[in-house]
């Protein structure tokens, strides 16, 4: 529901939707039935979030809503009104620089086609923030909400653990 309290939405009408996307305020109009990923991709042009199944299994469309990973395919655009949304486009510190997690994926070949990767990064980014000391079991558990057909997961697990370690070292330094 909208932050502005429960609103009565008309199925046949477009409604204004405004939220923070990677730190910037964005807005557009959406019918109540429009899914969040369609709004991100086709209304706002933020195509980094991918769509793999539209029924909540594959995890490719995972974004962070108010800091927590969520399926953009199981969220309506109007539900995101007033929220703080983070997507893969918001991970890198600069256009020519990757985050620690992204860099670990590159080093450990944690991606091949890269289609499922944005969702996986959003889940792992939240995991490493919430559970900086996480081990392999926790990483695998978090990844179990994502399907990857290219890598066989082993390099993703390796990348996540390497990123966790690098982040811990930065914190201690």
């Amino acid at each position: 529901m909208s932050r502005h309290g429960p609103a009565v939405l008309d199925a046949g009408q477009r409604h204004p939707v405004r939220f923070t996307l990677n730190g910037r305020t964005v807005s557009g109009e959406a019918e109540p039935r429009m899914l969040l990923h369609d709004f991100l991709r086709h209304v706002l042009g933020a195509t980094g979030t991918h769509v793999g199944c539209e029924h909540g299994i594959c995890g490719a469309c995972t974004v962070q809503i108010d800091g927590a990973p969520a399926r953009a395919c199981l969220t309506l655009a109007v539900q995101a009104d007033g929220a703080e949304i983070r997507t893969v486009e918001g991970l890198a510190p600069a256009a020519d620089r990757l985050s620690v997690l992204q860099e670990a994926f590159r080093t450990h070949h944690g991606l091949q086609c890269g289609f499922c990767t944005p969702g996986i990064l959003m889940t792992l980014d939240a995991l490493l923030r919430e559970r900086p000391d996480c081990g392999e079991a926790e990483v695998r558990e978090a990844l179990s909400g994502h399907l990857c057909r290219c890598t066989g997961y082993a390099p993703i697990v390796k990348a996540a653990l390497a990123a966790a370690e690098a982040l811990r070292e930065t914190d201690h330094a």
């Binding site: 486009e89 991970l91 890198a92 990757l98 992204q102 994926f105 991606l111 944005p118």
Partner: peptide, 15 residues
């Protein structure tokens, strides 16, 4: 290939 894919700048058909 990786830098673009990791940053959400891949160019898949629906993008």
């Amino acid at each position: 290939e990786d830098a673009a894919l990791l940053a959400g700048r891949g160019r898949f058909i629906d993008d």
